[in-house]
């Protein structure tokens, strides 16, 4: 390779390094913020779910439209990804999990409605010919609860009037900065089994929120004014809590994944730039050596005349 080519290559690698390094720093800040938000949302979600779980014995006996199991003909899928890439396998993992779950459902493609949070999910399912019921892009890091409630309302209404017979959600669970995991949950119809999974999934493995929920479960509850009314308040709310929680977790995961991906990229570009510089020096030295030997050869040829 010519000297000039190597030089321009080094420059371009260094430019890439600067970009990835800046992105790493930005993601690190965003990650810290969104992690704090995801964590602050956890106590509520955990309490809401565990109240419901403890009310669960009555959940089986109480007839509520949101717990009713029906033959599955129409389904809604909520998929949460990021808008932008450069975040490692994050989005690919969520989309793969969704496809797997969609295949496992015995519902034809045109009876599935997709609610896509994030551009990547919207593009993916549009290309594959699914019905995109709603798409949300450019969701800022501070996810607003009002927006969530609107979407949750649409979904809860859709389920109540029989437009959907089941509702699922796939998102990324934030386990730690280095570990994010795509998870699938059934949102509706609510059942105590599915709720238990969500409660367990919400408690992080370590850190300040990693305390197990209190196991004491009273066998009898006084409910005021009635179990139905408590459930009426709690159940629709819970749907929006699950949704809100999924978005927060996904945001925290996205920024963590991007930070790690960018860190790897800038480490790699530093290594590459170093090895290119070494090649550059070698080539330059070779050129100097050959020039010197030519000159020496020339002098000797002249001296022997």
């Amino acid at each position: 390779m010519a000297l000039k080519d190597i030089k321009s290559k080094i420059q371009s690698v260094n430019r890439t390094h600067q970009v990835t390094k800046a992105m790493e720093a930005v993601s690190a800040v965003k990650m810290r913020k969104s992690q704090a938000r995801a964590f602050s949302g956890r106590p509520y979600a955990r309490s809401a779910l565990s109240i419901l779980e403890r009310l669960a014995p009555s959940l089986a006996s109480v007839k509520h439209p949101l717990t009713e199991k029906r033959t599955e003909k129409h389904s809604a899928f909520i998929v949460v990804t990021s808008d932008k890439g450069l975040a490692g396998v994050l989005n690919a993992a969520v989309l793969k999990e969704t496809s797997r779950r969609l295949e496992a459902l015995t519902i034809p493609k045109d009876a599935v409605d997709i609610f896509a949070f994030g551009k990547k999910a919207a593009e993916y399912f549009e290309r594959r010919g699914y019905t995109l019921k709603d798409r949300f892009e450019n969701i800022s890091d501070d996810v607003s609860i009002e927006d969530m409630e609107r979407t949750a309302q649409t979904i809860v209404n859709g389920f109540t009037v029989g437009m959907y017979d089941r509702v699922d959600i796939v998102y990324t669970n934030f386990k730690s900065t280095f570990e994010q995991q795509p998870v699938w949950r059934r949102v509706l119809p609510l059942s105590s089994g599915a709720l238990h999974d969500i409660v367990v999934g919400i408690v992080p493995e370590k850190g300040m929120f990693a305390r197990p929920g209190n196991g004491e479960s009273p066998s009898f509850y006084t409910t005021e004014p009635s179990s139905e009314e408590v459930l009426d308040v709690l159940l629709p709310r819970l749907t929006s809590v699950i949704l809100y929680h999924a978005l927060l977790e996904s945001k925290a995961s996205e920024h963590s994944a991007r930070m790690v991906a960018m860190k790897n990229a800038s480490d790699k570009s530093r290594d590459l730039s170093k090895s290119l510089l070494r090649t550059f020096n070698k080539v330059r030295q070779a050129a100097i050596t050959s020039e010197v030997s030519e000159i020496v050869g020339g002098i000797e040829a002249m001296a022997s005349k």
């Binding site: 009273p218 509850y221 006084t222 005021e224 004014p225 408590v230 009426d232």
Partner: peptide
């Protein structure tokens, strides 16, 4: 303290 189990809106 020691209130009976209760769920209310």
């Amino acid at each position: 303290k020691n209130h009976e189990p209760l769920a209310a809106t």
